[in-house]
Design a protein around this nucleic acid. Sequence first.
DNA 1: GTCTATAGATGGATAGAC
DNA 2: GTCTATCCATCTATAGAC
Lengths: 195, 195
Amino acid sequence: MKHFSEISATAERVVDAAEGLIQARGYNGFSYDDVARLVGIKKPSIHHHFATKSELAAVVAQRYTHRFKELLLQIEGSSVKAAERLSAYAALFEKTFSTDKHLCVCGMLGAESSSLPEIVNHEVQRFFDANLDWLTQIADDGQRAGQLTSKLSPQSIAETYLSLLEGAMVVGRGMQKASGPAIVADHFLKTLTVN
Amino acid sequence: MKHFSEISATAERVVDAAEGLIQARGYNGFSYDDVARLVGIKKPSIHHHFATKSELAAVVAQRYTHRFKELLLQIEGSSVKAAERLSAYAALFEKTFSTDKHLCVCGMLGAESSSLPEIVNHEVQRFFDANLDWLTQIADDGQRAGQLTSKLSPQSIAETYLSLLEGAMVVGRGMQKASGPAIVADHFLKTLTVN
DNA sequence: GTCTATAGATGGATAGAC
DNA sequence: GTCTATCCATCTATAGAC
C-alpha cells in the first residue's frame, strides 16, 4: 500500500478532506464526490490519487496514527509526571472533539469495522495497539515512580482509559452536548491517584 | 411517529432485522434490501411497514431503549448492592458484544449522529438520558448506603461508566479481539469501592 | 400485505481526450 | 494530473396489479 509520506500535495489535500469526512460521517457516510467537492477537483481525479476508497481510508488511518505517535512523543518530552501525561493525552481527544464534535478517526472506523475492508481494519488495529502500548508504559512508569497509587495493572489502566476516551466522544455526540472526553478523563484520573 | 408496540408481527421482524444490521454495520451500512433478504420478503414490502429508513431506525432505537429500561428494572429487582447492580449493568453490554461483536444500537448511532436524520438522533438522545439517569440514581443510592466509597459525584460516576462501556465495545471491535466491556467495567468498579 | 416494475439519484470505478 | 463521458451496481422510494 501507498505510504502517506510519499504522496503529492494534492493527494495530501485529498487525505485531509477524507479524514474530516470520516471523523464526521464515517466510512460508509462519505463518497468520492464529497471529497472531490472539498478539494475542488472532480470525482475521477480522486481516483487518480487513490484507486479505491479502501486505500484512501487506509492512508487516512495510517497518517492519523503516525501523527498521533508524534504527539505522544511530545507529551513525553513536555511533562514528567504520569498524571500530567495522561491528562495531556486526554487533551488530544478533547481537541478533536471540540472541532465540530469530530470523532477519533479510528474510533469511528472501529465502530464500523464489521463493514470495512480488511486493509482499513488493519490500520485501525495498529492505532489502538500503539495507544495501548504507550498508555501501558506511561502507567507502568507512573506506578514505579509512586505517582500513580492505583492498584490496577498498567494494562488495565491503559485499556480502561482508552475505552473511556473513545466512549466519551461517542456518548457526547449521541447526547448532542458540548462536553467532551476531558471531563470524564478527569474523573478517572482522580481514581488513579487516590486509592 | 409509529410506536413499536403497535406494529404487526411482520413489522416486528423487520425491526428485528434492522436492529441487528445497525448493530453490525450502522445506519449508513445497511439497506432496505438487506432487511428484506433477512425477513424473507421483497424490498418494497419493507416500505409498506416503514415508509422511510429514518422511521425504521427511529423505531429500532425506540424499542431498544424501552427494552433496556425493562432490563434496568430487572436489575433493581434482583440485586440490592450498588456494585452488583453496576456489574449487572455491564453484563448487558457484554452480552450484546458477545453476539457477533454487536455494538449497542445507540452507541453505533451516536457515532454516526452527524449524518443521521433528526428523528433518529432524538431517540438516541433519549437512550443516553435514560441510562445516565438510572446510573446516577444507582450511584447515589450506593453512596448513601455506604456501598460505594468513591468520592466522585453520582453524576460523574454515571457519565464515566456509560462512556467506558460504550467505548470498550468500539475499541474491542477495532482491535478485533474477543474481550468485551465486562473486563474494563470490572477495573473501574474496583476503583469505586476502594478509595 | 406482498408483489413486479420502475423511477431518479447516487455509489465506486474506468476509458480516453487534453 | 485533470477533465468529460459513461458504466453498472445499488440506493431510497413510489406506482399500481394481485
